[in-house]
Write a protein that binds this DNA or RNA. Structure first.
Lengths: 191, 191
DNA sequence: AAACAGGTAGACCGATCTGTCTACATGCAG
DNA sequence: CTGCATGTAGACAGATCGGTCTACCTGTTT
């Protein structure tokens, strides 16, 4: 992997995440990254390919970050708490590697590329499934009745997504705390 | 209110909602609505003003629709159920007046105009507060301990937002049903 | 020495963008 | 009758878009 390629992906992610994909032109990415246009089109076929690479990079770094954060707490219900604590840090821009909070990149991109069969939209969908799989594993580790694992996982994912949306659209930076409280009640009800 | 103006707002909403604001040019709106460009700029100062009008129109029609839907159920916990039943109809595009489902217009626009102080973003924020107020009133009508009204309202809003996001990004058209189940448990836990 | 991968700067292309403008038509109020 | 609001069609301006291209530079490998 070339150095310049990585530089392009990082810069593209920053700009697309902060301003939106359609609002940022290829020339802006080039100026910000200090890379020549020819080099960009040497590594990527099109702007869309660059966006896709940025989505994949974000998918990777987000999952790694979240995995690390969950491991800070002992397995069990405390891990679910750690999930929402992590979200709280993200919303309040206390996580450098996730960039200043501007909602969920994948939700934002899905809004710009609404068609279900669009490659960018599908990549966003894949990311959400990846995160859901992480949460699913933690719910299983709770040791609750197997038939209740799926519904609880769904509920936690709904709370997580809702918190992201509320934090971004309404600017409610306490959304993760609220979601954590609701999650606690659901887990208690399941126990 | 002029006839042409209303026609413009309706067409603009349809196109911006389905394809995104930046992806739709003013000329496309004009061609689809059969209105002259001069007329558009007679009624609106800019494209942004047209988007704002579309947001306001959507805010209005969504709130009216939801209010009507909630009233179909007797006041109390059944109204909360009716909320998620309504969402389920929306997600599955069974509500003509809300147009074919493509996520939440306000979440989508917030993604395209991320800056918190942007007029379009603020309009999106306002819409969410309006819906939250509706839900807050229904939660109060449950007659639960007053100190628990706000947390439960927050939780229901989180589930609602999460369901919209999951339905759109992941294409999970059963998201409203899942949210309804989680909501039921929360209400039971509160009672 | 030759060939090649990867890089630079930036001119250039055709398309599209928002917004302005001219020129003209219609219907209603003073 | 006059004036104004409202409408039409569409040319036009100036900027920006994604993407291609020429011309040149710098290492490394063969």
């Amino acid at each position: 992997m070339s150095d310049k390629r990585h530089q392009l992906v990082m810069t593209a992610l920053e700009l697309f995440y902060q301003k939106g994909v359609h609002a940022v032109g290829i020339n802006e990415v080039l100026a910000a990254s200090g890379v020549a246009k020819k080099t960009l089109y040497h590594h990527f076929d099109s702007k869309e390919a660059l966006v896709l690479a940025a989505l994949r990079y974000r998918d990777d770094s987000f999952l790694h970050w979240l995995t690390r954060r969950l491991q800070t707490a002992p397995a069990g219900s405390e891990r679910i708490g750690a999930l929402f604590d992590a979200l709280d840090d993200w919303f309040n821009s206390r996580v450098d590697e996730l960039l200043p909070f501007n909602g969920c990149f994948f939700i934002n991109v899905s809004g710009e590329f609404g068609e279900v069969d669009h490659p960018l939209h599908q990549q966003c969908s894949q990311h959400k499934r990846n995160v859901a799989a992480l949460i699913h594993a933690e719910v299983q580790a709770l040791g609750i009745t197997p038939s209740r694992v799926a519904p609880l996982t769904d509920a936690l994912c709904l709370l997580k997504e809702g918190a992201i949306s509320m934090a971004h659209v309404q600017g409610d930076l306490t959304a993760a705390v609220k979601a954590k409280h609701a999650a606690k009640q659901l887990i208690t009800a399941h126990g």
